[in-house]
Amino acid sequence: MDKVLMKGNEAIAEAAIRANCRHFFGYPITPQTEISAYMAKRMSKVGGTFLQAESEVAAINMVYGAAGAGVRVMTSSSSPGISLKMEGLSYIAGADLPCVIVNIVRAGPGLGGIQPAQSDYFQAVKGGGHGDYRMIVIAPSSIQETVDCTIDAFDLADKYRMPVMLMGDGMLGQMMEPVSFPEVKTDHLPKKDWATTGTKMKRKANIINSLYIHPEELEEVILKREEKYNTIYETEVKYHTEGLENADVVLVAYGTTARIAKAAIALAKQNGIKAGLIRPITLWPFPTDIIAKTAPNVKCMISVEMSTGQMVEDIRLAVNGVCPVHFYGRTGGAVPTPTAIFEQIRRYA
């Protein structure tokens, strides 16, 4: 496979097209606008639809309509825009619709800043919208992985009939790396015989809906969905580990932060300290098992994030008091340096 040099945002857009996504609805916001720009240029060439909506709210509801009509569909935004999409996301989850949402996270709250951040972790994995629902959240850490995860995101969405979020940050969106695009196959996925494509007078009406007025009926629907979520937790967890054997200190970090953590681990090695890394790729389902399994063998874990400490709560739940879990982070768009992370490793080793 030939490699091409691509920016993260553009690689996401191209990967989506390769994954047979032919419908994209978006609204401009920094630092993800290249996704829209790329889609605007490419979609018309491949017979697809790019539509710039009047708002993030409209864009996610266009996604709802198109997903309900049975096509592969994507939207992308950044933190403040994702907040606006949360209503629609809740409806999409409640109506069991497959789609892909990209969040190229910037600093918040409010308008915050346009520099990279990981402070939307809670919003992504704990709900964000209202109601009992989950969303698969995938956090790649290189541009190649971004391509692979984008393709996986569409497959997972179709397989489980649910929204999947691809979560990057401004740095991943803007960075360039060589990538190759794998061949995409979709024939293993379930048929969308539930979609509203018109009855053609040959079947009963299909209805896309999240309203159930009787409590017992709604409870049944939610519990059935919960079973699906449990299956996902058992089968779809993805992570990467490095140097866990004999490690005294284990860093847990995802996305851009995991790249910097690797540099810090190399610094530790030079200084005779054994440090390892657990890098969650799926943030939901969270790699609870590997963290729990590792905890008894280490002095401590350190969650490194570009936030004031969000993923650290899930690590502590997984560790369940077996070892200390520390936190180091920068926030507001500031990025941790390898040296600063190394200082934390040295402090707790």
Partner: peptide, 18 residues
Amino acid sequence: CDMQEAAHGRAPAVATGI
């Protein structure tokens, strides 16, 4: 006929997607 239920006020956006 086939139907979709939209969030409050979003029917024209949902219709656009369909």
